[in-house]
Design a protein around this nucleic acid. Sequence first.
DNA 1: GTCCCTGCAAATCCTTTGCACTCCT
DNA 2: AGGAGTGCAAAGGATTTGCAGGGAC
Lengths: 131, 131
Amino acid sequence: MKQLKYSRQRESIKACLMARHDHPTADAIYASIREEFPNISLGTVYRNLNLLVELGEIQKLRCGDGADHFDADTRPHYHFMCRECGCIEDLPMEISQEINDLAQEHVHGKIDSHITYFYGVCENCMKKKTS
Amino acid sequence: MKQLKYSRQRESIKACLMARHDHPTADAIYASIREEFPNISLGTVYRNLNLLVELGEIQKLRCGDGADHFDADTRPHYHFMCRECGCIEDLPMEISQEINDLAQEHVHGKIDSHITYFYGVCENCMKKKTS
DNA sequence: GTCCCTGCAAATCCTTTGCACTCCT
DNA sequence: AGGAGTGCAAAGGATTTGCAGGGAC
């Protein structure tokens, strides 16, 4: 365990992530942070995001669009991603333990968790289609 | 809709994928195919895999290990991935429609599907640990 | 002959890393 | 002072793409 030192950049990254709820990518966070720290580098953003994930202070989402997204809400919860605009929404519902148990009966090994992403079309994109 | 022409390479890629059940990456398929077509290029493998996915003849899996995996079984089904060795196993159980319906109540949009990956330790890796 | 498909290499996207320097403690 | 954190740029892995030549129809 190496000891941790304070860094304004890391604080700013975490604050930025807590302030927004759109599950930004590293690059989007980089763009935001640049307003406060014009010299911050993308590498630093990645390093700190990964560090915060290790510390359990944020979580990383892989919805399948190529880039990792980050979420300041570390409670396990489901996500919904819009196929059209790529936006990500939190689902305020419990993680199903049942489905883990059910799956356990069908697998040669020990399941400890599962990750689920829901896909479809968000309200905004549906509106655009009808108009 | 562009029309499709026969290609030995594409047939071979599909045959290879149908013959194995380990959900290989593009690179692993490339290595296999090379035995039959020593001159095939990785680009061709990717192009054909993506084409087959579009045609609905195979499916792409993104388990979060960085590389895409491919599956000749196009029926929707769950997967289990071992955290230690990275192997992927099919789960012979029905996809839950219930969880879609449940999630639908909590989202601003229209859910059409979900993807779930289970994670844990496979039988082989558990054996290795006790021995 | 037409147009799709191929091999090759270069390019792209996202992420990580090496290094010299800076800032916490 | 010591070592973690930073900026920069280069490297890395996975995937895509442009192009000229080859093959299917």
